[in-house]
Amino acid sequence: MMKHRLNLRVNKQDFEVFVKPKTTLVDLLRDELGLTGTNKGCGTGECGACTVLMNGNAVNSCLVLAVEADGAEITTIEGLASEGRLDPLQQAFVDEGAIQCGFCTPGMILVAKDFLEKNPQLREEDYKTAISGNLCRCTGYVKIVKAIKKVAEGE
């Protein structure tokens, strides 16, 4: 099967890679680029563990073919901290103890990042809506919601 050349920008770094059409974005990020902070859970868009930002939108990277990301700007959990400082969402997750096993955490943080940017006015139930596509099997949702709310309210 012919490999396709694609150029993409991941965490502000340019990459040129060759992929088979069937390679998904999550597999490219993990297996080719070594960015294993993006986790792969279900592979079918149901668990949210593989959430990344693609051109600013949170997407399940298992539902995107790598070839579709040609020319795209991708942000993974590795790209959130800058100059040695954690993103406010990352800091809030640490401060609130919103992490247990950690498998869902990158996806939770990235979907929250997108959701907070697009929804300046949030109602109480919106925090749950934001993470409704992300499963935490430690069931630590209360602290996750608390951490996101903390950032939304600018505490």
């Binding site: 997407v59 979907v111 409704s132």
Partner: peptide
Amino acid sequence: AEKIASHQVRNL
């Protein structure tokens, strides 16, 4: 639209 899937899926 708000009743469909999740935020990430609705982005796609």
